[in-house]
């Protein structure tokens, strides 16, 4: 392996797996202030456009017998609607637009991020942290508004023996506050990992001897990443539903 690397130095075998996550201004310069149009902004805009195409343009026919485009929109709608109904319950349907927003946004962004030379917003800790903390604060506030101090019963496990309840309460509180961290790191980490691995394989493709293997690896990873892109959007949404269920029905 070391010999290979030595031999490859001349041909430029250098790994920059993380460069694809750099935020850069679109129109030159290096300053990134809060309003600068960057590649992050471009791909967020494209994500919104993709959501618009699928959910609005696709369903413009309003046909009773749906066209293909309309079927996709209806499928997404039914998928999230049923998820909320199954996991959280019928009383959570009022939060359906927000959960649908999360799902469609993450899904479209994950898939757009898989386009070569694109920018994956969901691989950015800043982005996923905002998404996860929005869910965390929303769920906490909903819990306190709906149940007042009864919401704290979530941490006081009445089904356990009295002696171990304080210990359980500490564990529950810690796990409650770790939720947004794991919620955001899971999404960003998955997308980062997949993209970085593809990039590493791509670097190996520069070696003639390894290139067939590398291209095969890229293809396989790309297929896996398509799956991960969907599953991570699904997992993020379903965990949001689970947390919301805790807020709406805090009894253990």
């Amino acid at each position: 392996m070391a010999d290979n690397a030595h031999a490859a130095e001349g041909t430029g075998l250098v790994f920059h797996p993380m460069d694809q996550f750099k935020v850069q201004p679109l129109f030159g310069g290096t300053d990134v202030s809060w309003y600068t149009p960057t590649n992050a902004m471009l791909w967020l805009a494209l994500t919104v456009l993709a959501v618009f195409l699928v959910m609005v343009v696709g369903t413009r026919g309003r046909a009773v017998i749906p066209s293909r485009g309309q079927s996709i929109g209806e499928l997404a709608y039914g998928f999230v609607y049923k998820m909320i109904e199954d996991v959280t319950g019928k009383d959570a349907i009022v939060y359906f637009p927000y959960i649908m927003t999360l799902f469609m946004f993450i899904l479209m962004n994950n898939f757009l991020g898989l386009i070569p030379a694109s920018f994956a917003n969901t691989a950015q800790i800043a982005v996923t942290a905002i998404l996860a903390f929005a869910v965390f604060f929303a769920v906490t506030i909903i819990g306190f508004v709906k149940h007042g101090t009864h919401f704290l019963g979530l941490f006081w496990v009445t089904s356990a023996p009295l002696a171990i309840r304080p210990v359980l309460a500490v564990i529950e509180v810690i796990s409650y506050f770790v939720r947004p961290v794991s919620h955001s790191i899971r999404l960003a980490g998955n997308i980062t990992a997949g993209h970085a691995v593809i990039k590493v394989f791509a670097a190996f493709a520069g070696l003639v001897a390894l290139s067939p293997l590398a291209i095969l690896g890229i293809t396989a990873m790309y297929g896996l990443e398509m799956l991960v892109a969907f599953i991570q959007a699904y997992v993020f949404t379903i965990l949001t539903c689970v947390y919301l269920k805790d807020a709406l029905h805090p009894s253990h």
């Binding site: 993380m18 935020v23 992050a40 800790i125």
Partner: peptide, 16 residues
């Protein structure tokens, strides 16, 4: 890691 470049956070969060 570009993800930890704090100076880009404002931009990302705003557009997000």
């Amino acid at each position: 890691m570009p993800q930890l470049a704090v100076e880009t956070f404002g931009n990302q969060i705003f557009w997000l």
